[in-house]
C-alpha cells in the first residue's frame, strides 16, 4: 500500500455537506474490474455537462466551467476540504480510488462516513477530522490567500504561513499510513489463533461452522 508521510500543496474547497460516494464516482464506472483510471471521472456528474460511460474518451466531453476543480486556483490541489459527513452512502471503494487517482492525498472535513473512512486507510489516503472552527480558518485562508499547506502525519500538524493546526488520528491508523502496512499480512500472523477459534466454534455453535 502507498505510504503517507507528508503532503505539500494548495487546498481545494467544496462548500457542500453529505457528499456521497455516488457523487464522487457514479455507478457506470463501477463496472471496471481494476482499481486504476477512476480519476478522470471523479465527481463526474458535476464535472461534465454531458453524460459519460466507462471506456469513453473523457477529454472529448464538454466540461462544466463552473466546477470547482476547474477553477485555476485549484489546479493540482492535493488537499480537498469538504463539508460534514463526507463519503456517505455506498461502500464503493472506487470513491477512494477516484480521489487518489485524481491526485488527492488528504481530505479534510468535520466528519466522514464510517465505511469511506475505513476505505481510505486501505489505500494511503489521509482523512483528517477537524473542528468546524479549524475548518473555517483553513477555508478563510484558501479564499483570501490560497496558501500552500503542509500536512505532516508524523507530527499530526497542518501548517501554512498564518497558522498551524494539530489534528487527531488514532495510533494504529497513523502507523498503517506511515509504514504502508498490509493489514492482511498482519492478520495472517495470527493464523493459529484464528484456527483455534474455529476449532472451538465447531463445538460451541456447530450450526454456525463452515467446516
Amino acid at each position: 500500500m502507498k505510504k503517507f508521510k507528508e503532503t505539500k500543496s494548495i487546498a481545494a474547497y467544496i462548500d457542500r455537506k453529505n457528499i456521497d460516494t455516488d457523487a464522487i464516482i457514479p455507478k457506470q464506472y463501477l463496472k471496471a474490474v481494476t482499481r486504476e483510471g477512476f480519476g478522470e471521472t471523479l465527481f463526474d456528474d458535476w464535472r461534465y455537462l454531458e453524460p459519460g460511460n466507462l471506456g469513453d474518451d473523457h477529454s472529448q466531453r464538454k466540461k462544466n466551467p463552473e466546477f470547482f476543480l476547474y477553477d485555476s486556483k485549484n489546479t493540482n490541489a492535493q488537499i480537498l476540504v469538504a463539508g460534514d459527513n463526507f463519503g456517505c452512502g455506498s461502500s464503493r471503494e472506487h470513491a477512494v480510488w477516484a480521489l487518489m487517482d485524481y491526485g488527492f492525498n488528504v481530505i479534510i472535513s468535520t466528519s466522514f462516513a464510517d465505511i469511506f473512512y475505513n476505505n481510505c486507510f486501505k489505500n494511503g489516503l489521509l482523512p483528517i477530522i477537524l473542528d468546524p472552527a479549524d475548518i473555517k480558518k483553513i477555508i478563510k485562508n484558501i479564499e483570501k490567500k490560497n496558501n500552500v499547506f503542509i500536512v505532516n502525519l508524523e507530527e499530526q500538524l497542518i501548517y501554512c504561513d498564518d497558522f498551524k493546526i494539530k489534528f487527531k488520528i488514532d495510533s494504529r491508523r497513523k502507523e498503517v499510513l506511515i509504514q504502508g502496512i498490509d493489514d492482511i499480512s498482519e492478520t495472517l500472523k495470527l493464523s493459529d489463533k484464528i484456527k483455534d477459534y474455529e476449532n472451538k466454534k465447531i463445538i460451541r455453535t456447530p450450526w454456525n461452522s463452515n467446516d
Binding site: 461502500s91 471503494e93 476505505n119 486501505k122 484464528i194
Partner: peptide, 16 residues
C-alpha cells in the same frame, strides 16, 4: 465493507 476488506475477509476470515 470496501473491496480491500472483501479481500481481507477472503484471505483471513477476519476483519480488524
Amino acid at each position: 465493507i470496501g473491496t480491500s476488506e472483501v479481500e481481507h475477509v477472503l484471505a483471513t476470515q477476519c476483519l480488524l
